[in-house]
Structures are given as structure tokens and as C-alpha cells.
Nucleic acid binder design. Structure first.
Length: 957
RNA sequence: GCAGGGGUAGCCAAGCACGGAAAAGGCGCAGGACUUAGGAUCCUGUUCUUAGUGAUACAAGGGUUCAAAUCCCUUCCCCUGCACCA
């Protein structure tokens, strides 16, 4: 056979030529529509991504071969700022990035046009389709390709949002989002898709506490409003410049950084005069809630970038506060420097407010002592803080001095106290990020209030209930997700669905200043693949694609004549689209990576349920896990993984496809390993070699027992594959096809099988089963075998009957062989002769009786013994019989009656006689077979007495 | 924290929803065959013990049962996702 690459090209051309990749409606023929969640266009993909895509193609191919008309469309997702960033990096001559492009095969002259984001999208779209999906031999309907930034797709999304609006699922409310000043709201996540720094940052809610000083307020930001009863002083960093700001008719003092952040979240803030931290030291200010005057003291840990830049001090429960207060009391020089009197310092004493199991009156003190921290600025203070916060929150209870909150659990008191202070005007809410975040464009990301943010109301109970109910009728794998998709749906609340700024995407039809964000424009899109065909070939254009058009083709609203007149689309085209949608929808399988479980899949389900009728609801979801790198996830953005074209060249497409299908269950992560792929390549080589050998073999014998065995085995595999594929279990299928069936066919040859007719029959079963996972090789072998047509468009034959008897008999021979080898090994002798003694017939008789009793449901040792003793012949052997009965009964109760039936029915003697030649050759010694009943048998060591049904006695000489 | 998943040979990994001789299959390793056009192929073995037997063994410990990797409880240890990111 020629090289992989050559046969890949050959058969891909052939499939395309014969139109296997085109999915058209065929009335009356069952259909199967499958997609993978389309990838975002953010750069080159790597070998990990092809895992899920390959599953999709293999399942589609299998369905095609079991009678279905299969539609497998593909597309890409370009909404967002990925392409914009990419283009700007090219435009800015970012060397690392240009190197990344060229390393992955981007020609130099292409760089110029990549400065245009849309061109960049086109560039990658072409790569995804030609270098990844087509290269992998997918039978996708390329005519239907769509991309989220194409104008026709946009029309579809606008229609979808109009429908959501009609269902009252769009709403507006203020929203606090991490936002870039240029690009608007950004996503913060570990993959750092939108941002260049700070992927693990979180938005934290601070309570701003207002401390009155004269007619001004010093503002402290706290994460623990429940600790206000323990406030004893106020920390200001003497080395920081603060500023006064006008907030409504109040004057606040905060750090300059905090002032900037506040302006993003609160209206009408004006910055007034600056004030140095050191000028506030020694002030007295009135603490909220407890209304006590507390002194302002110096603290270096107070960071202007965090919160308001000032901190209220609760030494009892805050390690920083405790250690700073202690330091201040110890080092009187500092107090002196700021003119603080000793009496003032001494008057500040911690107040115990929360009791936590395992801690004393002052949790902060305890944790500091146990961790051995002895001065401010110790880096472990952060850990100490986290620990004591966590324990306090979950196990703590408010002590009796906490007024109306006394006795409450901290978890409960926290919200209540915060709310009480907000209500009395002593506190406000403020949001900040836990660490510095920088947008891809280089600008700092801050939390910003957006007043008129639009949301999709996934919190809608009625919709949630209906969606959840529908999921009960779906096929969702893995089973865990099938279980917890319901909780995921319930956990969803409103989701911001639009954003502003420099983003690619579709204009929000309700208010055009917004652009629909990336998740929200990718929920209903499988439906669009049916329509995209017509937009792509020009039969309809974005101008025609009005709300009325979509209402008609998707929902069956309106009269075709009328719609045709209003849209300018010919009626027959409208009818075709409508019929296509009725034929292809609902979607049978949506396959996607595990990251979709809490993001894409729920909204995919919600939107279908909200907009489309009952008979258009999705039928299945398949989730696949990742291919990982050595230590961490192979990442698109961080590179390091093998580019796809290189891998294809190195290993061949089919070995890669087999690797994905078989290396592990779909539902576990797999560590990428070239050696693994290589072993799959070798396995395919072996299969190819074996088949070629079978085809070219000159030997031609008649049918023997082993022929029946082979066909029975293959029928069994076919049936188990059918069952496995009901659950889309490609791995189990691949085990049968590429391992077990190969082993069987090898064994067949070893046992002297050489019947042309059987071999042909076996290949007709085997090769098509290879077509879903390794289509190119299957095609090549199919043609080499001289079978008609393309195997990819053939139908899998229904599984024939299995012969339990034939399989049992073969197993018996194998056991005998293995036992002899065992004995040879243990004795480390090389025998010249091997004597086999089949069971004495009385033992079979006992077994037979036992089996009868078991089937009658009355098998036990005493009654079987009794029954045996009633037999005159058996009674002669009294002692041996009763001993054997014990063994037989335990034996019988432990295993299925099915296998015991074969055990009794098999004529072991003639079976061994027929296998004599084979055993002699395999074992390298002459084999003699005797029946234990034979009084003249050569048996010098009386081994024959060990013979039982299914287990002949063995003597080596 | 919330939600969920898992611990099976040197390694990867089936089996577990529905209890019925545990180790499918692969990799690795060790012998042997064939022979070095190869990242080969074929055979055998791979917990201990042993004339093919027997004994141990599915994270640890309990329980239910004639019977437990599988069902229940306790403990220990790993992992995943958590929102505007396909």
C-alpha cells in the first residue's frame, strides 16, 4: 500500500467527487444532524482540538452507514476582540506574534492583509477548513460553512434577539463589570482570552464604611462588615497621598486610585483637594454602627490600590490590624513622630466580637501566634488573613456585645449588618478586582457600573422549568452531566448579553449602540446551518433576511406567497428552506468540550426552548474532555503544542483519528504523547499487512470448524459495536474493531483457517467497521479487496447469529494449550510427549444432573449426592463421587448455566483429536489423547484421575 | 465557598447505573521465534506460590448479603467547573 498521505488525498477527492460531503434533504429517509461547538477564531489550533472534531465526524460516518442521511456542518466563531487584537499585533509589528504566525506556516506576504481584522478572520477560517477539517477527512458539508461575523449570520442573530424580546426574556438593569476603557466589558478568566494579565482576578464586593470627621467622611473599605463591633481605630498610610472628593453633597476622603475607580461606579463624583495621609494621623472620627470615636493611626500595610486605600481596624479578627497595633504600642518612636500621646495609644484595646470553635477571644492573635508571625509586613499575613476569615465566616457566631446581631452566625450577620448600615446611610457598596488586570490592548481593567446593561433573563423560572423538563428526554453524555445539567440550569441567572466598544459581532436590534456578546450569539446557530446554504450560494442575501423571513422558515408563520412578495425571495426557495428546516431539525447531537457544560450548553438549551416549538428541541449532547500537555492544558494562546499539519505529516490522519477514538474514554483528559500515536500507527500497519496477506494468500481450503468460530466471533463483535454506538462509545467500538477482530483473524490463520469464502465474508464485515474512525485506510482496503463502490457510503450489515458452542470449543482448546504451557513453565522441562486425558464420563453425568437441578432451582450438595447415589454405576465410585459433587455444586452456582451447558454438551475427546495436529505443532511435542474411561490408556502417574469436564488431565513426559 | 467527579497491576485504562469466578484492551518489561529495507513482526509470560493448584488483591476501615471493585457508612488523598471565556 502507498503512503498515508497519498491515500488520504486520493479518497478525499473521491468522496467529494461522489458528493458524500453534501447533505441534502431526501424525503422519507431518516436524518441525523450533528455539529461540534464551533471554535473561536483566535489563532492556530493544535492537536488537542481535533479530538472532539474527530468524534463528530466518526459518529456522523457511523450513522451514515446505518441508514441515516447525515448532516455535519461546520463554522467558526469570531465574535469579540480576538481578531482585532490579532490584527493590531500584526499592525504593531509584534515580533513574537509574527514569529508565531510564520512558524505555523503563514507566508510573509500574507502579513500585510492580516492587519485587517476581517481579513484575519478569513485567513483563519480558510486554515480551519482546509488544513484541519478537510485534511482530517471530515465529511462535513462545506457549502454550509458559516461564521458569526458574516452579515447573513448577523441577520439570524438579530431575529433571534427579537424573538427573545417578544418572549419578555430581555431586561435592563445596572451591572458592575470588569471593563477596559477602550473595549468596554471584558471577560476575566484563566485562559486570558480578552486580557493580557490578571486571569485569576475576581470581582470582590467591598462595603465602604463612612467615618465622620467634622463635616467630612474618611472612607474605609472592608470585606467583613460583620466585624464593625470590634472597631477600635482607623488606619491611614502616612506615606500615601489621599484626596477629597465630592460625592453628592458629602465630602469623602479616599486614595487617588480609589477616587478614579469610584468615578466609574458612582455618578457625580468630583475630585477636590489632595490631602496627605500623615496630616490625618491623630484625628478622631466616628465609626459607623457603633458610633464611637476612634483615633486615626498610621499603618504601612494600607495600600492605596486596594479598596479605598484606608482601613478600619478590627484587631480581634484581622491579623494585619493586630500585628500593626502591637507594633505601634511597642515602638513608641513612631507614635512620637506623629505626635500621638501614649494615653491615646494605650486606650486602643481589641474587643472580642466573634466566637469561633478552636479559637480564643482574639482569633487574629491566635493565628499570628500559631504561624509565628511577629512583625507587620510578613508575607504570611495574607495566608493568616484568609484562614481566619474563612473559619470566621463558616464557623463563627456573633458574641453578645453585637447588639441586635448577637448570637447570629457570621454567615447571616454579614449581610444583615451590611444592609443595616447601607439603610442608615453609614455604608455603601463598592466593587474592586483582587489583582491587577490588563486588557489585551494594554489598558487597565477596572470595575465599571453600566446602567442600561441588557440581560437575557435565564433566571426566568418558567423557562428554566421547561428547559429542565426537556433535558429529561434528551440523550446527554456523560451520565454525570445528564444528572447535573438540571442544577446548572437552575443556577443560571440573568446573563449580560451585549457590550460596547471595539468588538466584532452583531448589532443588538433593540438598541443598536450595543453589540451582542460572544456566548449569546451562539446558542441557536445549529439551525442557521440549514439556511446558510442558501445565503452562501446567493439564492438569498442578507437584505432579504427579514424578521418575516425567519418567522416563516423557522416557525412556519405567515403565508409563503405573502412572505415571498415582501422579501423578494422566490416562493420555491422559501418552500425549500422551510422544508429543509422541517426535515433536518431538531439537532441530534451537539458535541463540545467540557468547558461548555456550564456556559454554552445551558444557553443553547434555554434559547431553543424559549424560541422554537416542541418538535425542534435538541435531542442530544456529547461532552468531550481534553488532550493535555505534560503538566498543564495545551493552550491555543500559549503555544507549545504540535501544529496540526506537522502532526498529520508525521503520523498520518488515520493513526491520529484512531488515537483520539481509542486512547481513552471520551470523558477523561488525556496527556498528549507522540509515542502513543505511534503505537496506533503501528497497529494500523499491522491491520493493513494482515488484510493484504489474506487477500494475496494462494492457499485455499474448505470450511472447517474454525470458520464457524470466526464468523461467530465477528457477529458477536458487530452486535457489541452496535450496542456501544447506541451510547456513542467510540472507544469500545475501536477496541472491538482494531484489537479484538485483528486478534481473532490472526487466531483463525493460526488454527489453519484458509477458506476464501470465509475470509471474504469476514472482510466484508470488518473493513466497513473501520470506516467511521479510519476512513482512508478502510477505503483503501475495501478497494484492494475488490469490493464494489465506496465503503464510506456502504451500509453496515446487520449482525448475524453467534454460535456459543463453537466459541466454547475454541476456548477449550486454548485453555488446554495454556495449561500445558503453564506446566512446562513451572517444571521448566521440555517434554517430548504430551498426554491428554478427557474427563471420565461419570463426572459429566454428575454435572449434567447438577445442571438439571439448578435449572429446576433445587441445587444443593446433599440432594445432588443423594441423586447420584441412586445411580448404580455412580455408586461404585461412591467416595470420589461425593467429593466431586461438592466441587461441581460450588462450580455450578458460581457461573452461568449457559456456559455449563456447552461444557456438558462438548465431546471433548473428538475435539482434542481434531486439534491434535495443531497442538503438536504449537507445543513442540507429540500429543496423545485418551479418554479417562479407556482402561488401556497409557497413564504411568495416574494423572487421568484429575480430569474433570472442561479440564482434561495432562501428563508430560 | 458552591456544584460535581475520581482513587483498579510498573504506566494508561475497562468493569461500577443492574452484586455472581476481577483485572478487558493497550503501553512498558522479560523470554523465545524470525531475522536486522523497519519507530518492525509473530509467539509466550508479567501479584505471590504451584504439575495446570492454591493464596492475596480494586485508597483505608467498617456494614448489608449465600456472594461486594460494584450497594450503604466513616476516614484519607487527588481532580474539574464556577459566568459574560466556542
Amino acid at each position: 500500500m502507498s503512503g498515508f498521505e497519498e491515500i488520504e488525498k486520493k479518497w478525499q477527492a473521491e468522496w467529494s467527487e461522489k458528493g458524500l460531503d453534501r447533505a441534502d434533504r431526501i424525503s422519507g429517509r431518516p436524518k441525523f444532524m450533528i455539529i461540534f461547538a464551533y471554535p473561536g477564531v483566535t489563532g492556530f489550533l493544535h492537536v488537542g482540538h481535533l479530538r472532539g472534531y474527530t468524534y463528530t465526524d466518526a459518529i456522523g460516518r457511523y450513522k451514515r452507514m446505518t441508514g441515516y442521511n447525515v448532516m455535519f456542518p461546520v463554522g467558526t466563531h469570531a465574535t469579540g476582540n480576538g481578531a482585532i487584537t490579532l490584527a493590531s499585533r500584526v499592525a504593531n509589528k509584534d515580533l513574537d506574534f509574527i514569529d508565531y504566525l510564520t512558524r505555523n506556516g503563514c507566508p510573509e506576504e500574507k502579513l500585510e492583509e492580516l492587519k485587517d481584522p476581517m481579513k484575519a478572520v478569513d485567513f483563519f477560517n480558510t486554515i480551519y477548513v482546509n488544513e484541519y477539517w478537510k485534511r482530517f477527512g471530515f465529511l462535513a458539508d462545506w457549502r454550509r460553512f458559516t461564521c458569526t461575523v458574516h452579515p447573513d449570520y448577523g441577520k439570524f442573530i438579530q431575529w433571534q434577539f427579537k424573538k427573545l424580546n417578544e418572549c419578555d426574556l430581555l431586561m435592563q438593569k445596572p451591572y458592575y463589570s470588569p471593563a477596559c476603557p477602550v473595549h468596554g466589558p471584558v471577560a476575566i478568566d484563566a485562559s486570558e482570552t480578552d486580557i493580557s494579565k490578571g486571569g485569576s482576578a475576581e470581582v470582590q464586593e467591598y462595603t465602604l464604611l463612612k467615618f465622620r470627621h467634622g463635616d467630612e467622611y474618611l472612607i474605609a473599605a472592608t470585606l467583613r462588615p460583620e466585624t464593625v463591633y470590634g472597631q477600635v481605630c482607623f488606619w491611614v498610610n502616612p506615606d500615601v497621598q489621599y484626596t477629597r472628593i465630592k460625592k453628592g453633597n458629602e465630602t469623602w476622603i479616599v486614595s487617588k486610585e480609589a477616587a478614579e475607580k469610584l468615578q466609574l461606579q458612582v455618578d457625580g463624583i468630583t475630585v477636590l483637594s489632595p490631602i496627605a495621609g500623615k496630616d490625618m494621623i491623630g484625628w478622631m472620627c466616628k465609626a459607623p454602627m457603633i458610633h464611637k470615636d476612634v483615633p486615626v493611626l498610621p499603618a504601612s500595610f494600607s495600600d492605596p490600590n486596594v479598596g479605598s486605600g484606608m482601613v478600619t481596624s478590627v484587631p480581634s479578627d484581622a491579623p494585619d490590624d493586630w500585628i500593626s497595633l502591637e507594633a505601634l504600642k511597642k515602638d513608641r518612636a513612631v507614635a512620637k513622630k506623629y505626635g500621638l500621646s501614649e494615653t491615646l495609644i494605650d486606650s486602643v484595646v481589641p474587643i472580642s466580637i466573634i466566637s469561633i470553635e478552636g479559637y480564643g477571644d482574639f482569633p487574629a492573635e491566635d493565628i499570628i501566634l500559631s504561624m509565628g508571625i511577629d512583625q507587620p509586613g510578613d508575607p504570611r499575613l495574607d495566608e493568616a488573613k484568609k484562614q481566619v476569615y474563612k473559619d470566621g465566616y463558616h464557623m463563627g457566631r456573633m458574641k453578645d456585645i453585637c447588639g441586635p446581631f448577637s448570637g447570629m452566625r457570621v454567615e447571616e450577620a454579614k449581610d444583615k449588618m451590611k444592609q443595616a448600615m447601607i439603610d442608615s446611610g453609614e455604608a455603601e457598596v463598592f466593587y474592586d478586582l483582587t489583582e491587577e488586570v490588563v486588557c489585551r490592548c494594554g489598558m487597565p481593567v477596572r470595575v465599571k457600573r453600566i446602567d442600561d446593561q441588557w440581560f437575557i433573563d435565564y433566571g426566568n423560572e418558567e423557562l428554566t422549568e421547561r428547559t429542565s423538563e426537556h433535558c429529561r428526554h434528551m440523550e446527554i453524555y456523560p451520565p454525570e452531566f445528564n444528572e447535573n445539567v438540571h442544577t446548572t440550569l437552575r443556577w443560571f441567572r440573568e446573563r449580560a448579553c451585549v457590550r460596547q466598544g471595539n468588538w466584532l459581532g452583531t448589532r443588538f436590534p433593540v438598541d443598536e449602540k450595543w453589540i451582542i456578546e460572544a456566548i449569546s450569539d451562539s446558542t441557536l446557530y445549529p439551525l442557521y446551518y440549514i439556511i446558510s446554504l442558501y445565503a452562501n450560494d446567493g439564492r438569498i442575501s442578507p437584505d432579504n433576511m427579514t424578521e418575516e423571513f425567519f418567522d416563516h422558515v423557522a416557525l412556519g408563520k405567515g403565508d409563503a406567497e405573502e412572505v415571498s412578495k415582501n422579501t423578494g425571495i422566490p416562493k420555491d426557495v422559501l418552500d425549500d428552506i422551510r422544508e429543509d428546516i422541517k426535515y433536518w431539525y431538531p439537532l441530534d447531537i451537539n458535541l463540545g468540550g467540557k468547558e461548555h457544560m456550564t456556559v454554552h450548553f445551558p444557553v443553547f438549551l434555554f434559547n431553543h426552548r424559549a424560541i422554537l416549538p416542541d418538535n425542534m428541541q435538541p435531542k442530544g449532547i456529547l461532552v468531550n474532555w481534553y488532550i493535555t500537555g505534560k503538566k498543564n492544558k495545551i493552550s491555543k494562546s500559549k503555544g507549545g503544542a504540535q501544529p496540526i499539519p506537522g502532526a498529520v505529516e508525521q503520523f498520518g490522519v488515520d493513526p491520529l483519528r484512531l488515537y483520539y477514538a481509542h486512547v481513552a474514554s471520551m470523558f477523561v483528559d488525556v496527556e498528549w504523547s507522540e509515542d502513543n500515536v505511534m503505537t496506533y500507527r503501528q497497529r494500523l500497519d499491522r491491520i493493513i499487512g494482515t488484510v493484504e496477506e489474506l487477500l494475496t494468500s494462494e492457499e485455499a481450503g474448505g470450511k472447517k470448524e474454525i470458520d464457524e468460530w470466526l464468523i461467530s466471533r465477528f457477529n458477536g463483535h458487530s452486535a457489541s459495536i452496535e450496542a456501544a454506538m447506541e451510547k456513542y462509545d467510540l472507544r469500545q467500538m475501536a477496541t472491538a474493531v482494531y484489537f479484538e477482530m485483528l486478534n481473532d483473524i490472526k487466531w483463525y490463520g493460526r488454527r489453519g483457517g484458509n477458506c476464501k469464502e470465509t475470509v471474504t465474508e469476514a472482510l466484508r464485515m470488518w473493513i466497513p467497521l473501520m470506516a467511521p474512525v479510519t476512513p482512508h485506510i478502510a477505503e483503501e482496503l475495501w478497494s484492494a479487496a475488490g469490493f464494489e463502490g465506496l465503503v464510506s457510503s456502504s451500509q453496515l450489515p446487520a449482525a448475524g447469529p453467534v454460535s456459543g458452542a463453537a466459541e466454547y470449543r475454541e476456548e477449550f482448546v486454548r485453555e488446554v494449550m495454556s495449561d500445558v504451557i503453564q506446566i512446562k513453565k513451572v517444571t521448566s522441562a521440555t517434554p517430548k510427549k504430551i498426554f491428554l486425558y478427557t474427563t471420565p464420563s461419570w463426572r459429566s453425568d454428575v454435572m449434567r444432573m447438577g445442571l438439571e437441578m439448578m435449572e429446576a432451582g433445587a441445587l444443593d450438595i446433599p440432594s445432588l449426592t443423594k441423586k447420584c447415589m441412586a445411580d448404580e454405576n455412580l455408586r461404585k465410585n461412591g467416595k470420589a463421587v461425593s467429593e466431586f459433587v461438592k466441587k461441581a455444586v460450588t462450580d455450578l452456582t458460581r457461573s452461568s448455566s449457559e456456559s455449563k451447558k456447552y461444557l456438558i454438551e462438548t465431546d471433548e475427546y473428538s475435539l482434542l483429536i481434531s486439534a491434535k495436529g495443531f497442538l503438536t505443532e504449537e507445543l513442540g511435542a507429540d500429543v496423545e489423547v485418551f479418554s479417562s474411561d479407556d482402561p488401556d490408556a497409557y497413564d504411568p502417574h495416574n494423572k487421568s484421575k484429575a480430569a474433570v469436564p472442561g479440564r482434561p488431565a495432562i501428563y508430560l513426559e
